[in-house]
C-alpha cells in the first residue's frame, strides 16, 4: 500500500484499531511521518479550494454569458425591470 493511502485511512479514521495504533506508534518515533500527515491534511484543503475555484470560474463564465449574450435578451430585460435606475 502506498504510504499516502495509509495516511489517508488514518486521517479518515478508517481501518481497524490495530492499524491505527501502529500508525500512532510509528509517528511517535518517525517525526517526518507526522509531518507528512500534517502536509497531507493541508493538501486536502488545497484540493478543495482548487475545486471551488474551478467551479467559480465556470459559474462566472455562465454569468457573463447570460447577461451579455443577445440570445438571452428576454431574460436580461426581465431581470433589469426589477431595478429602478
Amino acid at each position: 500500500m502506498i504510504e499516502a493511502e495509509q495516511i489517508e485511512k488514518y486521517i479518515q479514521q478508517q481501518g481497524d484499531i490495530s492499524e491505527r495504533l501502529l500508525m500512532e506508534a510509528r509517528m511517535q518515533v518517525d517525526h517526518e511521518l507526522a509531518e507528512r500527515m500534517a502536509f497531507q491534511k493541508q493538501t486536502y484543503q488545497l484540493i478543495r479550494e482548487y475545486g471551488q475555484r474551478q467551479l467559480r470560474r465556470e459559474i462566472r463564465q455562465v454569468r457573463k454569458k447570460v447577461f451579455s449574450d443577445s440570445a438571452y435578451k428576454k431574460f436580461q430585460t426581465k431581470v433589469r425591470s426589477y431595478f429602478k435606475i
Binding site: E58, V62, K65, F75, V79, Y82, K84
Partner: peptide
C-alpha cells in the same frame, strides 16, 4: 455543468433579482 448553471440562472435568478430589487 454549463447547461445546468445556465438553466439555474434562467429559472431562478429572476426571483432572486426581484427579491433584492
Amino acid at each position: 455543468r454549463e447547461t445546468l448553471f445556465t438553466q439555474l440562472y434562467l429559472d431562478t435568478f429572476p426571483a432572486v433579482a426581484r427579491f433584492v430589487g
